[in-house]
Nucleic acid binder design. Structure first.
Lengths: 251, 251
DNA sequence: GTATACGTCATTGTATACAATTTAGGTTCG
DNA sequence: CGAACCTAAATTGTATACAATGACGTATAC
């Protein structure tokens, strides 16, 4: 197995400058991935459920091969984990626990803190654009908060847009990718406990305003701290809910 | 495709309490993964090289199925990426660039900063144990620094042990996993430019001492900042080298 | 009654054939 | 000389058969 040999090929050049990430033609694998993710996020596939390749393949009317690929993706994104039972690699839907949420929120807080720091160091002009978008999203959140209309999905989307704006503005590809993965995990907690979280929306809106000010004035330390605080407070709010409701779907 | 149905199975119970993560007997896939990773890290598979399933399978004398799995793992860990060309998912060995290094180092600095913060908040007794280990590793590094003996591999291992000690002490599973992945990417840069970095070892040793002090005294802010600074200075040192040597293996 | 050995079944691991689709090269026409 | 098209080859996507392994239940011995 030693010896050198690289997959040498002509490899003339990279044609298009890869404008943006296009979607490939619909695969079975992608189909399976989306189906399973949807079911996990919505809770139809409960945490702890065994993911059996053959079962899934049957129900989706595809073969095990694309299912296996989809499971790899789900594992990469943290939706399923290897059941540490013994030695056999058995996959289960990742459990939702308070400890896991703390882990997750702390990570995303610091990751966004980093991005926020970088965003606050952008040239004034670029920052202005970012700030404008942030204000739009936060205004919409404030509106929902005042209305007391419980639209968890919309709130989630707006909150995500707010935070993603900061990431897009300055984060590198790796940071964006990690953020995407971690945030997709947060979504599971959000969906499960959203009903009880939404009440506290106004608090989050206030924290967002602090972040906006920091970015607007180009203060990296303040921006970083603002993001960290927002997530830290978020996990405190979530923990309170989990304590009162119990750890759903973890057995 | 809607309708509910979970992978219902007897699922009597989880037998063993999962003592620890044993290694599965997975043969071909794990073999392929290790082989390919080794070749990428050592540079025998140059950045930008196309990863052709059939080629790899032939050369490793296995079928495409385990190769595909191995490629998924490599992709998860960031060793290979989807060539952004167009829509087709073609995998290439991830390029090494100065921008990517900056992205990487900033991320790991903040992630370890988080872990360092948490470690510094541990009970005094636990911190003492951590500090003792940190001092051992750093003493060994200091020794190598004084000897001016160029043992990049050993230096890398010791530095990794130092940082990993902090992670193990307080990081949750998710944080540890992300750290593992990101650090494995750092290893590629380290190996490629180690010869020129080793000279600056004494600087890193000094920074480590600052971190040790922070943990020892239970100062979270100082610990976080110390880790961030260590990585930030690290990428500055690396950038200098890359500037003088050029971006190897990126074309 | 308990424990150990054995056999069966569920599940994942691997190989391979075939289908689909993109890429490359060359030819023709403007 | 260049552009559009067309064909052939390279590569990945999918299905399926079979092998290997570990878990569980049953029977038998003590």
């Amino acid at each position: 197995m030693p010896s050198e040999r690289k997959s040498a090929r002509p490899q003339t050049e990279q044609p298009g400058t890869s404008l943006s990430g296009k979607k490939s033609r619909s695969n079975s694998q992608e189909f399976a991935f989306k189906q399973l993710r949807e079911m996990i996020v919505t809770g139809r596939l409960a945490p702890g459920t065994w993911m059996i390749e053959a079962d899934i393949a049957d129900r989706l009317s595809i073969s095990r091969t694309p299912v296996r690929g989809a499971l790899h993706w789900l594992q990469r994104d943290g939706y399923v984990i290897a059941a540490g039972n013994g030695n056999k690699s058995r996959l289960i839907v990742a459990p939702l626990t308070k400890d896991d949420a703390r882990d997750l929120y702390a990570i995303i807080g610091h990751l966004e803190g980093l991005a926020g720091r970088q965003t606050a160091q952008l040239p004034q002009k670029a920052r202005a654009t970012v700030v404008r978008r942030l204000k739009e999203f936060n205004a919409a959140l404030a509106q929902l908060s005042r209305d007391r209309r419980s639209e968890p999905n919309r709130i989630f989307e707006l909150d995500l847009s707010f935070h993603r704006t900061i990431m897009e503005a300055s984060a590198g590809p790796r940071l964006k990718e990690i953020h995407r993965i971690i945030h997709s995990q947060v979504e599971r907690y959000w969906r499960l406990y959203s009903g009880a979280i939404v009440n506290k929306l106004s608090l989050s809106v206030a924290e967002h305003n602090e972040i906006i000010k920091a970015v607007s004035s180009g203060d990296p330390d303040r921006a970083e701290k603002g993001l960290q605080t927002n997530w830290q407070n978020g996990v405190e709010r979530l923990s309170t809910v989990i304590d009162s409701l119990g750890e759903r779907g973890n057995w």
